[in-house]
Design a protein around this nucleic acid. Structure first.
Lengths: 138, 138
DNA sequence: TATTAATCCTATCAATTTAATAGGAATTAC
DNA sequence: GTAATTCCTATTAAATTGATAGGATTAATA
């Protein structure tokens, strides 16, 4: 299951992308428009800022803005920040690899091999989709 | 993340598939060989039996066996039984569809559209992989 | 028929994760 | 200096996960 955190994060990024060009977008505005609990959204946008995807401006008339062009923000990046590893098991993760406790030999593990397939196909989609695609109307 | 339940289930099914032709395979044997807590595995195999993937024989010399040929057991079926919906959000699930509370129009929702892509690619892999593929050595 | 060995069933529990809330500090525009 | 905003930390309630416990039921076989 996709966490609410990720779902909200994606919706917020899409919202911001659709406003781009103007001044920073405020959390309250996004929360209201997208029906997201404001305090929860605050923490999500903070995470995205710390990851370098968003920038922020503090104080009155502050808010969030994209650090890169929507077409340069790949879904792999966003998903890794919000949802964590794309692989369903650590032993097939490219960025968060961990060996299984059990499993003497990964190459002989049926689960391992299946999950590599799933990962590769998911990666293909997430790598070839950018925030620009998400924020395109229709 | 793939749950332990699913991981254990897949390993157990693979183990059983590799023994096929002989008498039913016992939980204790699988648990020992695959390093799975026996009581936990019991409940998993029970689930697979109730779903019609496994059959069982009770009493002494009892155990579990496949109800179909490994080449007829698709990963979509196994994953749905053990892990639940393949879609990451209910609103793109084929078998467990649910509308989102928020989201006035799915067709305009960026998350919805992305998750359809992910689902379709995952489905492709899981539909074209069977237990026979998993249990092939190498 | 008694014993043994297996599945079956229900309940419970501890740990973790998730989703959300609360309260206020720091910063900036005006 | 006031208002509006992000920033930060802590807390909490609910759900899920992974596992354990105990025994009921069933069947083979000595």
């Amino acid at each position: 299951m996709l966490s609410k955190k990720t779902k909200y994060g994606l919706k917020a990024l899409t919202y911001i992308a659709r406003q781009e060009g103007e001044s920073p977008v405020q959390v309250g505005e996004i929360a209201k428009s997208e029906q997201i609990p404001q305090k929860f959204l605050e923490s999500i946008l903070l995470t995205l800022r710390k990851a370098g995807i968003l920038g922020s401006k503090k104080g009155k008339h502050g808010g969030y803005y994209l650090r890169k062009s929507p077409s340069d923000i790949k879904m792999t990046e966003v998903m890794r920040v919000l949802e964590g590893p794309i692989a369903m098991v650590p032993c097939v993760s490219l960025n968060f690899y961990e060996k299984c406790d059990d499993c003497p030999d990964e190459n002989l593990c049926s689960v391992h091999r299946l999950m590599i397939q799933v990962r590769d196909n998911t990666l293909y989609v997430l790598r070839s989709t950018t925030l620009e695609d998400l924020s395109a109307i229709n």
